[in-house]
Nucleic acid binder design. Structure first.
Lengths: 177, 177
DNA sequence: ATATCCATGTAACGTGTTACATGATTGT
DNA sequence: ACAATCATGTAACACGTTACATGGATAT
């Protein structure tokens, strides 16, 4: 599972608490991997037991902040994993299930839902493009790390653009007959 | 969850057994929703309890084939659901986690994995395009149902093309400096 | 009859989601 | 002191995956 590795990456960038991690998953990390705070605390507990990370601040009290840092085995585990191979993740999209169902039923119109998705994808795309322009302005000098981070962001942009184009295509196509 | 609806759709097209459903999920259905036979049997059991589908063939014996058909409440449930709204599914991609990790570590080269993914996406794309050409040849007359099914298939094609383009872009970009 | 395969399941576990609970901190 | 908020956590459940088990059908 990638949650462990996403957490290790984020903690390597800057050690922090579980709640701060949850906030990061709602921002930059969330562009390519999502997690709720319950998942994060569960995973942090397991990672601590496995000796990948360590906490400063005692686990005895409940509401006490615990700052986590990555230990050497954690960094090693991340390096090994990052150098490894993974599978392609196939599409798994509710909207497509709806459309396939509508095709069979013949009594449902999905065009409104298509337009709604078009709008949502448009919003997300604009958000990504704003971040790209802010953090990686074109023409600026970039390190290898910057190139990689920009590539990750670009994946999101390409992804949203392709869905947008598809929505336009499907909405225009059948009507154009 | 969309598994229920995907099963209803497939059973409406043609009633069949659980094993046959599993085979369909490995083919056309699997392009936009995946399920193993264990998930399918579990879900069929729940749907039967809920009165959405019914089986011909007794459930008493273990290895006996049971053909399922959709009941009126099942069709109604599918119609309601297909006319409803759904959320966008954000990207959740291991490769991007690897790249973000590599950016932080600075000691890992992900280009080989990128090229591997490029090849895999290329394979999938060719498979989709072959299906599109076979089942929906360009220039042919198409019903509304055909248009919808083609749109679903096109989503897969657009998706794979966009990842392919991204892989090429990332592999070429930093080297082109 | 027996080996093989197929259809149908069970069991166990990991991951993801939702709702809720409790101790600490902060503001008034 | 009290309310509001934050950080941490528990509980329960739904979904997904892997491994395995059992009854029926088929072929030789």
């Amino acid at each position: 599972m990638s949650l462990t590795q996403a957490i290790l990456t984020s903690l390597l960038e800057k050690p922090c608490t579980g709640a701060e991690l949850a906030r990061r998953f709602d921002k930059s990390l969330g562009y390519f991997w999502q997690a709720t705070h319950q998942q994060i605390y569960r995973e942090l507990g397991a990672m601590e037991r496995d000796g990948l990370i360590a906490a400063h601040g005692l686990p005895t009290a409940r509401g006490r902040q615990r700052h986590f840092t990555v230990l050497a085995p954690g960094r090693a585990a991340l390096e090994t994993w990052c150098a490894g191979e993974g599978e392609l993740r196939p599409i798994r999209d509710e909207l497509l299930v709806r459309m396939r169902g509508a095709a069979v039923l013949g009594t449902v119109d999905v065009s409104a839902e298509l337009r709604r998705h078009q709008g949502l994808h448009h919003e997300v795309l604009q958000r990504y493009e704003a971040i790209a322009e802010r953090d990686f302005p074109s023409g600026a000098q970039r390190s290898t790390a910057d190139e990689l981070q920009l590539a990750v962001l670009t994946a999101g942009i390409v992804y949203e653009k392709s869905w947008l184009a598809w929505c336009e295509d499907v909405l225009a196509g059948p009507a154009g007959d």
